[in-house]
Amino acid sequence: MKNFALIGAAGYIAPKHMKAIKETGNQMVAAFDKFDSVGVMDSYFPKASFFSEFERFDRHLEKLKREGKGVDFVSVCSPNYLHDSHIRFGLRLGADVICEKPLVLNPWNMDGLELVEKETGSRVFNILQLRLHPAILALRQKVISEPANKIHDIDLTYISSRGNWYYTSWKGDESKSGGIATNIGIHFFDMLVWIFGKVKSNIVHLQTHDRASGYLELERARVRWFLSINQETLPESILAKGKTIYRSLALEGQEIEFSDGFVDLHTESYAGILMGKGFGLQEARSSVELVHDIRQQKGIGLIGDYHPFSKKPLADHPFL
């Protein structure tokens, strides 16, 4: 049984990590969040110590370490811009670190973390759960088995509706979240590069407060992509069903269904890490570099081969 500490216990994704720790037969001994709405801990680890001040959390973990009861892993579920700092904290504590996506916001942060890994001997692992999804694994195997010169045409669409709260939270601040492409799209970009190879060309058509779209040329694919948090960009058929999320990956016009099968992927990710099969810094690097490159670009408008959803009417920022 391994001992875990968790940073960001009040966040949306934290319960998936708590569930994964419990279902892999391990123990969460301490958690931190500056917000104290963490009653969800009762469902998993009611005896875990909780801290709303980082200094006291730090002191507690140091005390456990001196007593020979230190944590083996630190799970990082904090806001994106704090990942780098919290990963460093875990490594210097002598623990391995499991971090949510995006691992960091900037490629040079990866270089710094590699140095801290070497200094401490501890490891960083990223949750890249789409690499474990059965439909995605099957697609990758299909592509690998094809001739190397086979180039696919892909439309990727992901709309995950958010209310106005989004814009006043850290997620609406590009310097903290990385913007739309990073915050909701990085796991899809990781999946695409993992399956279809390195980026050869990266064009951004639109980049606003509520959507982003562009065109990627990969070694084995041409990809038109569209990401949005605006419910009004959902297809009429999805709106008619009262749904607020739409995922679509179309390969040569043929839909690849992967909406289901997400339930236990965090647990599978943890199981793999505990068996020495986790995704480390090098596996996470390509998607971090890609979304950083997207973030540096201004949309060129509807020129060239753009995603058809890019023509949907643009919305005003609710607070500008």
Rank of each mutant, 00 (worst) to 15 (best):
A9C: 07
I13V: 13
P15S: 06
K16L: 01
H17Y: 04
M18A: 12
K22E: 15
E23M: 10
Q27S: 08
F32M: 04
S37T: 12
V40A: 10
M41D: 01
Y44S: 09
A48N: 05
S49Q: 10
F50K: 14
F54D: 07
F54Q: 05
F54E: 07
E55A: 10
E55D: 02
E55V: 02
R56P: 07
D58L: 03
H60C: 05
L61E: 03
E67N: 11
E67F: 01
G68L: 04
K69A: 12
V71S: 03
S75D: 10
S78Y: 02
N80M: 10
L82W: 06
H86R: 11
R88L: 05
F89K: 05
G90A: 15
R92E: 11
V97W: 00
L103G: 14
L105F: 03
N106W: 08
N106P: 03
P107A: 12
M110H: 08
E114T: 01
E114L: 08
V116H: 05
T120P: 04
T120C: 01
T120S: 03
R123Q: 04
V124I: 13
N126R: 10
N126L: 13
I127L: 09
Q129R: 14
R131P: 03
L132G: 02
L139N: 06
R140E: 15
R140N: 10
K142S: 10
V143Y: 04
I144G: 01
I144F: 12
K150C: 12
K150R: 15
D153R: 13
D155R: 08
G163Y: 10
T168C: 09
W170G: 00
K171W: 00
E174K: 12
K176V: 06
S177K: 09
I180N: 02
A181S: 14
T182I: 00
F189C: 11
L192P: 05
I195M: 05
G197E: 01
N202E: 12
I203D: 07
L206A: 09
L206P: 00
A212Q: 08
E217I: 07
E219Y: 09
A221P: 02
A221V: 07
R222N: 15
F226Y: 15
F226I: 00
E232P: 01
P235Q: 14
S237Q: 11
A240I: 04
K241Q: 15
K241H: 03
K243L: 12
T244S: 14
I245G: 05
I245W: 08
Y246E: 01
S248L: 10
A250C: 13
Q254L: 09
E257S: 04
G261H: 05
F262W: 14
L265S: 04
H266Y: 15
E268C: 07
Y270D: 03
Y270T: 08
I273K: 06
L274P: 05
K277D: 07
F279K: 09
E283W: 00
S287R: 05
S287I: 02
E289Y: 13
V291R: 07
V291E: 03
R295I: 01
R295F: 10
K298S: 15
G301D: 08
L302S: 11
H307R: 11
L314P: 00
P318S: 06
